[in-house]
Simulated assay, not measured.
Amino acid sequence: MMTEEAKQLTTEQEWTNAFQVMKQLRTHLNLNTYLKLVREAHEKDRYEMHALYDNGEIVSVIGFKPMITLYYGRFIWVCDLVTDQSQRSNGYGEKLITYVHEWAKDKNYESVALSSGLQREDAHRFYEERLNYDRVSYVFKKNLKE
């Protein structure tokens, strides 16, 4: 019997437990840098990390921030969403982001938005075709440490 549960990760130990999955998306991070960034984002920027567990094992992780902008109004910005590579195509990512949709609705947020790397065409199909997300903009970035 499969037992799936989504829950918020709030402790350094829980964030550490999620690192092996998150590292598959954020390959540039080592554990120390990851923990430092998660801690600071959690404390200063309302960042939340949630995980989907199947039979007690983390299979998918999402990080997001509640935000308010003039363009989107009250919305959730998904910063990170990744399913363990050995568990992909089992519906876990869809279950976890649907959980965030419900979380957002319960707290009166109007929408959920995210960006996805240009090269991640499978992810784009997932968002547009499976989840009915609209492609609404491009994201531009300027590195200031050049």
Results as ranks from 00 to 15, higher is better:
74 R>D: 13
71 Y>A: 00
84 D>H: 07
1 M>G: 14
140 F>C: 05
10 T>H: 08
133 Y>F: 13
25 L>M: 08
71 Y>S: 06
143 N>L: 12
127 Y>H: 05
96 L>N: 01
66 P>Q: 05
51 A>C: 11
80 D>S: 10
11 T>A: 00
56 G>V: 00
7 K>N: 06
92 Y>K: 04
11 T>F: 09
127 Y>Q: 00
60 S>G: 03
91 G>W: 04
34 Y>S: 00
37 L>D: 07
128 E>V: 03
136 V>F: 12
128 E>D: 02
77 W>F: 13
58 I>T: 00
95 K>N: 09
111 S>T: 05
19 F>I: 00
89 S>R: 05
105 K>D: 12
6 A>W: 06
105 K>N: 09
38 V>I: 12
93 G>S: 06
89 S>F: 09
51 A>I: 05
34 Y>E: 00
97 I>E: 00
95 K>V: 06
48 E>A: 12
102 E>T: 08
42 H>L: 04
54 D>P: 01
131 L>I: 06
109 Y>E: 02
123 A>P: 01
23 K>N: 03
10 T>D: 09
17 N>F: 12
20 Q>C: 08
124 H>A: 04
83 T>Y: 05
115 S>H: 06
75 F>T: 03
25 L>V: 01
27 T>Q: 13
13 Q>T: 08
50 H>Y: 12
54 D>E: 14
29 L>R: 05
34 Y>W: 02
130 R>K: 15
138 Y>G: 07
132 N>M: 04
87 Q>V: 06
133 Y>H: 04
77 W>N: 13
125 R>M: 02
120 R>N: 11
23 K>L: 00
138 Y>H: 10
96 L>V: 06
102 E>D: 14
112 V>C: 05
17 N>E: 15
121 E>Q: 10
128 E>K: 07
105 K>V: 13
88 R>E: 12
92 Y>W: 09
49 M>K: 06
60 S>F: 01
130 R>D: 13
57 E>D: 13
121 E>I: 05
87 Q>E: 15
55 N>I: 05
21 V>D: 02
141 K>P: 03
89 S>M: 10
144 L>K: 04
138 Y>P: 04
106 D>F: 15
106 D>K: 13
100 V>E: 02
62 I>W: 03
25 L>E: 07
36 K>R: 02
120 R>G: 11
15 W>P: 00
109 Y>Q: 10
12 E>W: 01
78 V>A: 08
